[in-house]
Structure formats: C-alpha cells, structure tokens
C-alpha cells in the first residue's frame, strides 16, 4: 500500500491494516523498544520488519530516536487515538440506534399489555 499520498488519518488506517504492523504497535504499547527487539518475534526478515517500521513511521503512528547508535522506536498515542476516535463515533451512532430500538420494543410491550388487561 502506497501511503505517502494519504492524509494522516487514512495513512494510519492503511498502516493498521497489516497484522504484523498491529503486532508491532501492540508491543510498543508496552513501552519503547530498539528496532532489533521489535524484529525478534516475527518469522520474517529484518528487512521486512524494517519496511513495516518505515510504513508506521510515515503514518505518524510511531516515531524513532537514536540512543548510542541504537534506533529506539516509540508509539505516538495521539495518532492512534485519532483513528480510535473516528471509529468510536460510529460506535456512538450504533449504540444510539440499539438504544432507540430497545425503547421502541418496550413501547410495543406496553401497548400490548395495555390492550390486553390481565
């Protein structure tokens, strides 16, 4: 996926689409880590891991710093939050929908019991 032409939100969504990149993010959620440590759990080449890290970096979801010639990667929680905020608005919409449906069914129940005294 070419992500350079995307706006930040779309780039983050594109980056999140890949399971390896999600696994890297989950690892980073526990704290920053050197590139070497991030690559270790995956049965793919270090070059492939490096490419995933580049995609994540371009998407803004992670950033890197250099510490004694080691590349240290950290999560950017704000960038991640933008994507979850976006999705959570749809959550609010559907929660509201099911609340309305539930209230409607209760109204039906009441009308039915009013109509059949017993």
């Amino acid at each position: 996926m070419e992500t350079e032409s995307l706006d930040p939100l779309s780039a983050a969504f594109a980056a999140l689409a890949d399971p390896t990149r999600r696994a890297i993010l989950e690892r980073l959620a526990r704290g920053e880590a050197p590139v070497g440590d991030l690559a270790a759990p995956f049965p793919i080449t270090p070059q492939a891991v490096s490419r995933h890290i580049k995609v994540l970096e371009k998407s803004g979801l992670i950033s890197r710093r250099t510490d004694k010639q080691r590349r240290i990667i950290r999560l950017n929680p704000q960038a991640l939050k933008r994507t979850s905020d976006w999705v959570n608005r749809y959550r609010a919409f559907w929660e509201g929908q099911l609340d309305s449906l539930g209230a409607f069914l209760e109204t039906q129940n009441k009308e039915a019991s009013d109509g059949e005294p017993r």
Binding site: L16, A29, L80, S84, V87, W94, E95, L98, G102, L105
Partner: peptide
Amino acid sequence: ASLADGMPATDTATGDPLSVRVRKTVNA
C-alpha cells in the same frame, strides 16, 4: 490483547482492526 491508549479492538472474526461492535439486550 488490546492496545493501551485507545487502540481499536481487532475484531477476531473479521480480522478488521477498525470495526465497531455493539451489543444490547432488548425486551422482545
């Protein structure tokens, strides 16, 4: 495992990292 700081939960059924799932019990 879910990520800290608001990572959307991955829907294991669809593999979609950005899906929304809501659940409600209705009296009907």
